[in-house]
């Protein structure tokens, strides 16, 4: 799932400073799940904006909506009337949602209210960790299902760097596991440590050509 977090209020406020009526648009999928841009966050941000602008004597009118998936044109189209009513759209969707909205309503400024951070999973309630770097060349089969591309601070492919802390923690953050220690534990448990001994050739960074495109097999 895509993880995002809300931008600092100051930044958001600055981006809508010149607008009087703003549509605050949430997304009902990934960013709802990661508490960054669902209906609850839409309500909070809209209220906070009204309070801030009201206190500054520069009142703002907010409209609120949450689209099931902002990265789908068909779903975004459903809110076109609300968009038409507003001077600008403040989107709490991931970068993909913001761009879909911006493309569909290309005469309106569509402004991001969250920073899209990574693809991850919840470690516990309210805490998400990065799991996948969308490299386009998955080699989790060789690493016991732990991706060192993103879970190692240096993205190393052939084992840990020399900085692993006591207890198998990362040199740059004692709260984070060294990915290669995790790989080792996992492969050891499965009796497949030989996999870790194999040389991993330099990564094929061409696997995802930017901009990425995936064409599904024709049905």
């Amino acid at each position: 799932m895509i993880i995002a977090e809300r931008k600092p209020m100051e930044e958001i406020e600055e981006s809508v400073a010149e607008y009087k009526k703003v549509l605050v648009a949430g997304c009902g999928t990934c960013v709802t799940v990661c508490w960054a841009g669902g209906e609850k966050e839409v309500g909070i941000l809209a209220s906070q904006l009204r309070l801030a602008r009201g206190a500054a004597g520069n009142e703002i009118v907010t409209l609120e909506t949450t689209v099931e998936r902002q990265c789908e044109k068909e779903m975004v189209t459903e809110i076109k009337d609300k968009v038409a009513e507003a001077d600008a759209v403040l989107s709490l969707a991931c970068g993909s949602g913001v761009q879909t909205m911006a493309e569909l309503f290309d005469d309106k400024p569509v402004l991001p209210a969250v920073n899209t951070t990574f693809i991850g999973m919840p470690e516990r309630e309210g805490l998400w960790v990065e799991m996948c770097g969308a490299c386009g060349d998955c080699f989790l089969d060789r690493t016991g299902g732990v991706c060192p591309m993103v879970r190692c601070a240096k993205g190393l492919l052939n084992g840990p760097c020399g900085g692993t802390r006591k207890g198998g923690m990362c040199e740059i953050d004692p709260d984070k596991d060294c990915a290669w220690v995790l790989v080792h534990r996992r492969l050891e448990k499965q009796g497949r440590l030989d996999l870790m001994r194999e040389y991993v050739t330099p990564k094929n960074f061409r696997a995802v050509r930017r901009p990425g495109k995936v064409q599904a097999a024709k049905a």
């Binding site: 009902g28 799940v33 508490w35 669902g38 309630e125």
Partner: peptide
């Protein structure tokens, strides 16, 4: 319709 099965409520 609204529940996105984020599991938050289950966890809390």
């Amino acid at each position: 319709q609204k529940c996105v099965a984020c599991l938050t409520c289950i966890r809390v």
